[in-house]
């Protein structure tokens, strides 16, 4: 995973709430087995059917900080939603509230999701709408979002922040505790279910 420290970019104001992951990327795009190339599926129904949809507006081309209404990323666990946003070019998403699984997925994959209160989201929307060229800085080191005269602190736990700043692989971190896992396994009850598995074929 690439480290995330600070990012400055223009804002896409997505004035919608309850944007579920089926809207971010519909099921028909999930049949692929790759981890890239999902940008064509991003908000595909809205991009195809709504000429006024914000991503169809030329002034927001190349903007890479998405600011959305509350409950962004609810619904299906598909991590493809995170990949689609990243593949399209987004580096950060700001919303007053995220779906839990989406949030977890984004922070694993290096897409910074930032929770800001409704009134600040409204301010960012208004600024991006009146001046699409205005920029916002998402600073993970300082845990701040800055836009012109506005500075807003956001919360992110120290551990996740550290992992993102360093770009660390979660699995590698866990494997440092192999001995703890071995000890836990040795003490598991015998009544727990196991599935007799076929031998691996390589």
């Amino acid at each position: 995973m690439e480290p995330f420290t600070t990012h400055t970019g223009r804002v896409v104001p997505l004035r919608r709430t309850n944007v579920d992951t089926d809207q971010i990327i519909p099921a028909e795009y999930l049949k692929r087995i790759s981890r890239s190339g999902f940008e064509d599926g991003l908000f595909s129904a809205w991009r195809a059917n709504e000429p006024d949809f914000v991503l169809n507006k030329r002034e927001y081309a190349g903007a890479d900080v998405l600011v959305a209404g509350h409950d962004f990323g609810t619904g299906s666990s598909r991590e493809h939603a995170v990949w689609a946003l990243q593949n399209y070019g987004f580096r950060a998403v700001i919303s007053p509230r995220f779906g839990d699984i989406f949030r977890g997925n984004s922070l694993k994959a290096g897409l910074l999701t930032v929770v800001l209160p409704e009134d600040l989201v409204e301010t960012l929307w208004q600024r991006a709408e009146s001046d699409p060229q205005s920029e916002v800085t998402v600073d993970l080191t300082a845990r701040e979002v800055r836009s012109g005269d506005l500075t807003a602190a956001f919360e992110l736990d120290d551990y996740t922040r550290w992992r993102l700043l360093e770009g660390l692989d979660d699995i590698g971190l866990t494997q440092r505790h192999e001995a703890d896992i071995d000890a836990f396994e040795a003490a598991r009850s015998s009544f727990l279910p196991t599935i007799s598995a076929p031998a691996p074929v390589t």
């Binding site: 666990s77 991590e79 699984i101 977890g104 694993k108 979660d170 896992i181």
Partner: peptide, 18 residues
């Protein structure tokens, strides 16, 4: 609980999740 694909990989590799 449901997990994303990065976590699927994590569980496959370690049988644990942070």
């Amino acid at each position: 609980f449901g997990i994303g694909t990065s976590q699927v990989e994590h569980v496959l590799a370690t049988q644990t999740l942070p």
